[in-house]
Write a protein that binds this DNA or RNA. Structure first.
Length: 953
RNA sequence: GCCGGGAUGAUGGAAUGGUAGACAUAAGGGACUUAAAAUCCCUGGGCGCAAGCCGUGCGGGUUCGAGUCCCGCUCCCGGCACCA
C-alpha cells in the first residue's frame, strides 16, 4: 500500500476542485440558501500566522457540512484593503499602496489556498476596487441626503503618529491610537461626522433580538452605547442665562449646593466673570493636559469659582455658587452638572476641598420583610432615635442580643430621643440598656438612617429615623440596667466579627458607613430635607421633582457620533465639493465613483489636509449645481474644490457582506431580490470587533433598511466568536518576539488536513489558546490510521462497529452545528481507535467515516473516495450520512452502585430489568456488602442510572 | 467601582445533578532497530505495599449523590469608568 503522503494529493485535488467549479455558488437553485461568512481580512504585509486560519477553517468545515446537507451554500472571501495599515506598509516599503495591496492580497490568497478552503472565488471582493467603493460613496451620499452625514468643527481625536483624526472607536481604552500606540490629542478641525447617535436606542434595544450572539459581545456594545436615563434641569443664573444640567439623580436636587461647568463649556466664554484672568488661566491649563492626565486615577480635583456668578437651585430657590472644574466633561450630557456632595463621591471630594456645604437629602431606608414586615392593622409609631456604636479600651464593640418572636436579634444600643437633646438621650440609653456610665463621644456619623418595621417586643409598627454616634468607654464602671432585669444580654465582639453578627439591616448599613472614610450615601433611599417630597422613595421622587422644576426626563448616551474623515490618502474619497464661498454640495450619483487619483507623494502632510489636496488637477474641477442641488462636472461651469478627506477603514467593511451576494451589479449596490434570497448572513464568524466593526455594520444596516436597500434590521443574527491563538510561549504572536508560526510551514510538515484538524481540535472555538506544534503530530497520526483502515475493507458491515459509528455520526452532526469542533474531532478519534481494534470494516461503514471526516480533512477523504470507491462525484457533493436511531439504542445499561452516595461499583443489566432485580444484582455482583456497617436503611433506585444504599451511621 | 466571562492532571481540554480527567500532547518504561526516526505495547491526579483514603480556586449550603445548582469570597481575562 502506498503511504499517506499529503504532498501528493492536496495540490492535486485543489486544482481539480477549482477546474470543476464544485464550490461555485449559483444565484438560484431548488435548494435552500445558506450564507456563512468570515470577517474578511486586512491583507497586511506580515502574511498569515497560524492564528488566522482558525476561523477560516471553522467556516469551511461548517460550509461543507451544510453543502452535504443539501443547502445552496454561499461562502465567500474578500479583502478589506483600504486604511492605515496598508498605507503605512506602503510608505515603509516605498511602494504605492495599490501595489502593496495587490502583493499582499496575492500572498494571503496563496497562504489561504494551501489549506484547501471551499471559497467561491468568483465572488471575491476588494473594498479598494472602484466598482466596490462606488457604492460606499453612494451610501455616504444617501446619509448626507438624510441628514446623517454632517460637517463639524469640534475638537476630535488626533493621532500625531498616523497624522489623522480618529473616531472614538479607533482608540484603545487607555486613550492611545489602536494602530500605532501614540498618545492621541484633542484637536479642533473640520471633519465629516456620521450621526450614529440617532441610532443609539435602536442599536441598544435590538441587541435583545440577537439571542445567538455571545453575551460578552452584546454587553460590550451596551457599555459602549452607555445609555443613561435621567433628567435635564435648567438652573437660572444671576446674569439672566439658563444653564441646563443632566442628572440621573433628580431626587437629590434639594441637595445641590453648587453647579459646575466643564472648562470647555461655551457659556464660560461669554459670562461676565469677575475673576476672568484666573478662569482663563485654568482653562488654558486644562487644555494642555491629555485626556489620560485629566482622568488619571487618584488625581486631586481642581476647579475655579466663577466670581460674581450665582445660580438658583430651582427646587428650593437658594443661591448657590458656580464653578468650572475639569472633572466635568464637556462632551457628556450638557457639559454642566449640579453638584450634590452628600450623595455623589466626586462632588463630595470637591466640596470638601473647597469647603462647600454638604446637604443630606436622601436617607438610607429599610422596610422590614417577612416576620418584621410592617402590619397593616397595627398602630404605627413615629420615633426619632439615636443609636450608639460603643467601643471599649480593647477595641471591641458592644452589641445587644435579645429574643423576639422566637428569633435572636443582634444590634447596637439605641432608643428614642423623645424630644430630648441628643447627648442627654445618649447618656440615658447607654445607662439604661447597658449600665455603662463613663464614656467620651468620638463622633456623630452624619448619615441619617431610617427604617420601618414591625416590632414584636412592642406589637407595633415603628417608623424611625436617627443618627449613629461613636463613643468610647473610659472605664468599665457600670450600674444596674436592663441587662440585670434579663431583658437582653451584652455581647462584646472584635471589629471583624460585627458585620456577621448584626442582623438588623439598618444597623448593618450604619456599621458600613462607620467603617468608610467618606460617608457618602450614593444609593437610593427616601427623601429628607426636600420640602413636600420628604418621605418619597428616590425612584418616585426623580420624576416628580423633575416635573416640579419644569425639567424633562431624558436619556444621554456615551456613544459619540462617528468621526468619518481621515486626512490620509488610502481611502475612499468623500464625494463632496465646495464652491468658492465654501458652500458644500454632494456630488451627483451619476458622477460616481469618484476615483482616488494617483499621486506622487501619498505620505500624510501633517497639516490636517489629506495628500489629495496637493493634486491641483484633481482637486479643482469645473461643474455646475443641478436642480436637485447636486454637483455634476461641466467643462464650461464654475470652479469647485473637491473634498480631500477620505473615509476611514471601517467604511467598506460596514456593508461588504451585501456585495458578495451580487458582486458584479453595476446598477445597484445589491439587487433587492437577491438581497431577500440571501440576507441576513446565517452565521458570521470572527474575532473581537464588538465595539468597532460590529457596531458600525449594525448601524449601517439599519440605515440601509430605512432607505429600503435591505429588508431586515440586523445583518448577522448568529455570531460565532473566535478565540485567538497565542504563540507557544503564551505571548501574542509577533515578529517582535520572534515567535510567529506560519501555516505554510505547518502544511509543509504535516499536510493541510492534519493542520486543519489540529486547528479545530486545539480547544473550544471561542477560547484563547496557545499554539503547540507537537499537537499537530496527534492529528497527523490520526489521519495515518484512517488511511491504513482501507486495507481492511469488506463488503459486509462489521456489526461490532454499527453502534459506535452511528453514535459518532450523531455526535459529529450535533457538534458541528454547535461549533464544538474540538469534541467532534475527539469523537472521530475514538471511532477510529475502535476500528483499529477490529479485524475488518464494512465498505459502507468506511464510506460513512470518510464523509463525516470530509469537512475537516477534505483532501485525504476525497483521495480515498475516488481511489478506493471509484466514485465519480466529489465526496464534498455527497449526501451526509444520517445516523440510524435504531442502531444507537443500547441493549444493556450501566448502573452505578453507591453506598451513601459514594460509588462502590457498577453493574450492567439488560434494558427493562425490574427495579427489584437491579437492587438484588447490585448486591450480588459488586462488593458493596463490605461497606454495610448495618442493614441498609433505604435503597434508592434512580432509573437507568444508579442504586444507592443508605446506611445509618 | 460597575458589567460580562472564567478557574478541572505537566499542557490543551472532556463530562444531560449519577464511575471526574474522555480525546490529544508532553513525560516515564518496554518491544522492534547497529542506531535514530517511525510504529506498537504498558504507566500516566496525589498519598499508600495493599485494602483504601483524598482530590475539579477557597468557605458554607441544597441533595441519597455536586466539577455541574444556591449563598459568600479569592484570583485571572475582557468591556466600561471623574459618564453626573
Amino acid at each position: 500500500m502506498q503511504d499517506y503522503n499529503p504532498k501528493d494529493i492536496e495540490k492535486k485535488w485543489q486544482d481539480i476542485w477549482a477546474q470543476n467549479g464544485i464550490y461555485t455558488t449559483k444565484d438560484t437553485t431548488d435548494k435552500k440558501n445558506f450564507y456563512i461568512l468570515d470577517m474578511f481580512p486586512y491583507p497586511s504585509g506580515e502574511g498569515l500566522h497560524v492564528g488566522h486560519p482558525r476561523g477560516y477553517i471553522a467556516t469551511d468545515v461548517y460550509s461543507r457540512f451544510k453543502r452535504m446537507h443539501g443547502f445552496n451554500v454561499l461562502h465567500p472571501m474578500g479583502w478589506d484593503a483600504f486604511g492605515l495599515p496598508a498605507e503605512n506598509f506602503a510608505i515603509k516599503n516605498k511602494v504605492h499602496p495599490r501595489e502593496a495591496v495587490d502583493r499582499n492580497v496575492a500572498r494571503f490568497k496563496e497562504q489561504l489556498s494551501l489549506i484547501g478552503p471551499d471559497y467561491d472565488w468568483s465572488r471575491e471582493i476588494d473594498t479598494t476596487d472602484p466598482n466596490f467603493y462606488k457604492w460606499t460613496q453612494w451610501m455616504f451620499l444617501k446619509m448626507y441626503e438624510k441628514g446623517l452625514a454632517y460637517q463639524s468643527h469640534e475638537p476630535i481625536n488626533w493621532c500625531p503618529g498616523c497624522q489623522t483624526g480618529l473616531a472614538n472607536e479607533d482608540l484603545e481604552s487607555d486613550g492611545t491610537c489602536e494602530r500605532c500606540g501614540s498618545v492621541v490629542e484633542k484637536k479642533p478641525m473640520r471633519q465629516w461626522v456620521l450621526k450614529i447617535t440617532d441610532y443609539a436606542d435602536r442599536l441598544l434595544v435590538d441587541l435583545n433580538t440577537l439571542p445567538k450572539w455571545p453575551e460578552g459581545v452584546k454587553e460590550a456594545q451596551r457599555n459602549w452605547i452607555g445609555k443613561s436615563e435621567g433628567s435635564e434641569i435648567a438652573f437660572a443664573l444671576n446674569t439672566g442665562e439658563n444653564v441646563k444640567v443632566f442628572t440621573t439623580r433628580a431626587d437629590t436636587l434639594f441637595g445641590a449646593t453648587y453647579i459646575v461647568f466643564a472648562p470647555e463649556h461655551p457659556l464660560v466664554q461669554t459670562l461676565d466673570i469677575e475673576n476672568r484672568d484666573e478662569v482663563n488661566t485654568y482653562i488654558a491649563q486644562v487644555a494642555e493636559k491629555t485626556e489620560i492626565d485629566r482622568t488619571a486615577e487618584g488625581k486631586e480635583k481642581t476647579g475655579v469659582k466663577l466670581e460674581g456668578i450665582v445660580a438658583i437651585n430651582p427646587a428650593n430657590k437658594e443661591e448657590i455658587p458656580v464653578y468650572i472644574a475639569d472633572y466635568v466633561l464637556a462632551h457628556y450630557g450638557t457639559g454642566a452638572v449640579m453638584a450634590v456632595p452628600a450623595h455623589d463621591e466626586r462632588d463630595f471630594e470637591f466640596a470638601k476641598k473647597y469647603e462647600l456645604p454638604i446637604k443630606e437629602v436622601v436617607s438610607y431606608y429599610y422596610e422590614g420583610a417577612e416576620d418584621n414586615a410592617p402590619k397593616e392593622d397595627a398602630e404605627t409609631l413615629h420615633r426619632e432615635v439615636i443609636d450608639i456604636i460603643i467601643e471599649n479600651e480593647k477595641g471591641e464593640f458592644l452589641l445587644i442580643k435579645e429574643t423576639a418572636n422566637n428569633t435572636e436579634k443582634i444590634h447596637f444600643v439605641g432608643g428614642g430621643t423623645e424630644g430630648e437633646n441628643e447627648i442627654e438621650a445618649l447618656e440615658k440609653e447607654l445607662r439604661e440598656e447597658t449600665g455603662y456610665t463613663d464614656f467620651e463621644i468620638i463622633e456623630k456619623i452624619p448619615n441619617l438612617v431610617s427604617a420601618f418595621a414591625f416590632r414584636h417586643t412592642k406589637l407595633k409598627n415603628q417608623k424611625i429615623h436617627g443618627y449613629f454616634f461613636h463613643i468610647k468607654l473610659k472605664s468599665e464602671n457600670r450600674v444596674a440596667s436592663e441587662v440585670e432585669e434579663g431583658r437582653h444580654s451584652l455581647l462584646w465582639a472584635p471589629k471583624e466579627k460585627i458585620k456577621d453578627l448584626i442582623n438588623w439591616p439598618h444597623h448593618a448599613y450604619a456599621w458600613e458607613m462607620f467603617l468608610k472614610k467618606d460617608r457618602v450615601f450614593t444609593d437610593f433611599g427616601i427623601l429628607i430635607n426636600s420640602g413636600e417630597f420628604n418621605g418619597l422613595t428616590s425612584e418616585e421622587a426623580k420624576q416628580k421633582i423633575t416635573e416640579f422644576v419644569g425639567g424633562e426626563m431624558k436619556s444621554t448616551y456615551r456613544l459619540k457620533d462617528w468621526v468619518f474623515s481621515r486626512q490620509r490618502y488610502w481611502g475612499e474619497p468623500i464625494p463632496m465639493v465646495f464652491d468658492a464661498d465654501g458652500n458644500v454640495y454632494p456630488v451627483d450619483a451619476s458622477e460616481l465613483p469618484i476615483l482616488l487619483p494617483n499621486v506622487d507623494s501619498y505620505e500624510p502632510t501633517g497639516t490636517g489636509e489629506s495628500p489629495l489636496a496637493t493634486i491641483d488637477d484633481w482637486v479643482n474641477v469645473r461643474g455646475k449645481i443641478t436642480d436637485q442641488g447636486t454637483f455634476v462636472q461641466d467643462a464650461s461651469g464654475q470652479m469647485f474644490r473637491r473634498e480631500t478627506n477620505t473615509m476611514p477603514q471601517w467604511a467598506g467593511s460596514s456593508w461588504y457582506y451585501l456585495r458578495y451576494v451580487d458582486p458584479k451589479n453595476n446598477q445597484y449596490a445589491i439587487d433587492s431580490t437577491k438581497e431577500k434570497d440571501w440576507l441576513p448572513v446565517d452565521v458570521y464568524v470572527g474575532g473581537d470587533h464588538a465595539t468597532r466593526h460590529l457596531i458600525y455594520a449594525r448601524f449601517w444596516h439599519k440605515f440601509l433598511y430605512d432607505i429600503d436597500v435591505v429588508s431586515g434590521l440586523e445583518p448577522f443574527p448568529r455570531l460565532e466568536f473566535l478565540g485567538f491563538i497565542l504563540a507557544e510561549d503564551g505571548r501574542k504572536m509577533s515578529k517582535r518576539w520572534k515567535n510567529v508560526i506560519n501555516p505554510d510551514d505547518m502544511v509543509n510538515r504535516f499536510g493541510a488536513d492534519a493542520f486543519r484538524l489540529y486547528e479545530m481540535f486545539i480547544g473550544p472555538f471561542e477560547n484563547t489558546v496557545p499554539w503547540n506544534t507537537d499537537g499537530v503530530v496527534g492529528t497527523r497520526r490520526f489521519l495515518e490510521k484512517v488511511w491504513k483502515q482501507k486495507e481492511k475493507i469488506k463488503d459486509e458491515e462489521n456489526q461490532n462497529l454499527e453502534m459506535i459509528l452511528h453514535k459518532t455520526i450523531k455526535k459529529i452532526s450535533d457538534d458541528i452545528e454547535a461549533f464544538k469542533f474540538n469534541t467532534a474531532v475527539s469523537h472521530m478519534m475514538i471511532l477510529v481507535n475502535e476500528i483499529t481494534k477490529e479485524e475488518y470494516i464494512g465498505k459502507n461503514q468506511y464510506a460513512s467515516l470518510l464523509q463525516i471526516l470530509a469537512p475537516f480533512a477534505p483532501h485525504i477523504t476525497e483521495e480515498i473516495w475516488y481511489t478506493v470507491f471509484g466514485e465519480k462525484d466529489s465526496i464534498h457533493l455527497s449526501v451526509w450520512p444520517e445516523y440510524d436511531a435504531s442502531k444507537i439504542i443500547e441493549s444493556t445499561i450501566k448502573i452505578v452502585v453507591q453506598v451513601n452516595g459514594k460509588v462502590r461499583g457498577t453493574i450492567e443489566v439488560p434494558i427493562g430489568t425490574s427495579e427489584d432485580e437491579i437492587k438484588k444484582r447490585a448486591v450480588s455482583e459488586t462488593k458493596v456488602e463490605q461497606y454495610f456497617t448495618s442493614e441498609p436503611e433505604k435503597v434508592l433506585y434512580i432509573p437507568n442510572r444508579a442504586v444507592n444504599f443508605i446506611i445509618k451511621n
